[in-house]
């Protein structure tokens, strides 16, 4: 199937509410690296669950994953 062939190379993700197509395979660590965020103080939630820093490298992203990537900012 062509849809499957397409999804075997491309990964459709929702990152902070925006839709993005990226090449697979991709881990959380790989994604942060591509975004220039590697080593930054941040936190990642995947489909409503926290992805702890320790497993960013081992967490493979799947088609349709919804990610939230957050930082601390000024606030009251």
């Amino acid at each position: 199937m062509s849809a499957q062939a397409h999804s075997s190379v491309s990964l459709s993700l929702f990152i902070n509410g925006e839709s993005r197509n990226l090449a697979r395979p991709l881990t959380v660590a790989g994604l942060l690296d591509q975004m220039g965020l590697a080593g930054k103080r941040l936190a990642v939630e995947r489909n409503g669950e926290i992805v702890p820093k320790g497993v960013h490298g081992a967490t493979e992203l799947a088609d349709g994953d919804r990610l939230e990537i957050v930082v601390a900012v000024g606030g009251g």
């Binding site: 930054k40 936190a43 957050v70 930082v71 009251g76």
Partner: peptide
């Protein structure tokens, strides 16, 4: 000190200073 938690801006300069 209180801080807020917000989405990173996609495409934001990763070298910009942070509150931390």
């Amino acid at each position: 000190v209180t801080v807020a938690i917000r989405r990173t801006n996609i495409g934001q300069d990763p070298k910009a200073p942070s509150l931390l």
